[in-house]
């Protein structure tokens, strides 16, 4: 790991100020991706700005129609939250499926979303539940994930919190890589106030919605309604873990399992 200057601001404005004044800064959330990345020298920041002591970025608050989770809330706290488990059980389940217990102690919601790893779990839920990402200056909804490790965030823009509307029902099913516990493919299906939404992760460059399945499930919320939908393997990921064709097939299987769980 190359050396860097380390900062641990206690307020959001202080964090942004340090970022603005540094040559090549990076924000540090839970570090479960960033620290291995620094070790491999894939990133060599001049300054690392640790967000762990900014109290405003932590916590879970329950509203009438949504749950709002601070960006620096770790997966262990989300999966252990009785409120999350009661109101959006799919989200509590998903958080408990990320990595392993030690990763969940550190890894955060905001870090996972800002990283937009193609195999991360949370992005599927963000899309399926119609979550809103809050930054200090604006809110971002459907168009947050823009590509491989790419998001709509501008340089220096931070996620403050994420609001998840409470769905009528939702489920997340994932075919995981047994070694890394990342999703080979993960599908989150939700019936929300604005209709049926299907979020897919692990399959493409970033998480995406599956419109055909959403339409079919809107007509009939049964696993049978989507079994006939052929998913194109075009633009899907192919690597040593799975071919694009295999991932295309898995989208159907995981979606059907998610629907079965709540139909």
């Amino acid at each position: 790991m190359h050396n860097f200057a380390y900062h641990r601001p206690e307020t959001l404005s202080e964090a942004r100020e340090i970022f603005a004044g540094a040559a090549d800064p990076l924000f540090l959330a839970g570090g479960q991706t960033l620290i291995p990345t620094l070790k491999q020298r894939l990133r060599q920041p001049s300054d690392v700005i640790d967000l762990a002591r900014i109290a405003d970025l932590r916590g879970i608050s329950i509203g009438k129609e949504s749950i709002t989770i601070g960006a620096m809330t770790c997966h262990a706290d989300v999966t252990a939250s009785a409120d999350v488990r009661r109101l959006i059980p799919a989200l509590g389940h998903l958080a408990g499926e990320v990595g392993d217990p030690a990763v969940r102690s550190c890894g955060t919601l905001g870090g996972a979303l800002a990283n937009s790893d193609p195999a991360a779990d949370y992005p599927a839920a963000v899309l399926a539940l119609g979550a809103t990402i809050h930054t200090p200056d604006r809110t971002i909804a459907d168009d947050f994930f823009t590509g491989l490790f790419e998001t709509a965030l501008a340089p220096g823009e931070l996620i403050v919190k994420v609001s998840f509307p409470i769905p009528k029902r939702a489920a997340y099913q994932k075919f995981r890589n047994p070694a890394s516990r990342y999703a080979v493919v993960g599908v989150c299906v939700a019936e929300t106030a604005s209709g049926i939404r299907v979020g897919v992760t692990g399959a493409g460059a970033c998480a995406f919605r599956q419109a055909e399945m959403e339409a079919a499930l809107s007509a009939s919320f049964t696993p049978e309604a989507i079994t006939g939908i052929a998913i194109s393997e075009e633009d899907l990921n192919s690597d040593l873990h799975a071919t694009a064709a295999y991932r295309a097939h898995l989208i159907g299987v995981m979606a059907a399992r998610a629907v079965s769980a709540i139909a």
């Binding site: 641990r8 540090l28 570090g31 620290i35 291995p36 070790k39 030690a102 550190c106």
Partner: peptide, 29 residues
């Protein structure tokens, strides 16, 4: 492994399990 896969470096930080190879010492201040 030093790649946060194997878990032999697990310690407790503030009572929680953490992979000590995936945390900077300054974070544990």
């Amino acid at each position: 492994c030093d790649t946060s896969q194997c878990g032999v470096c697990t310690v407790h930080v503030a009572g929680r399990p953490v992979k000590a190879c995936a945390m900077l010492a300054v974070q544990a201040d």
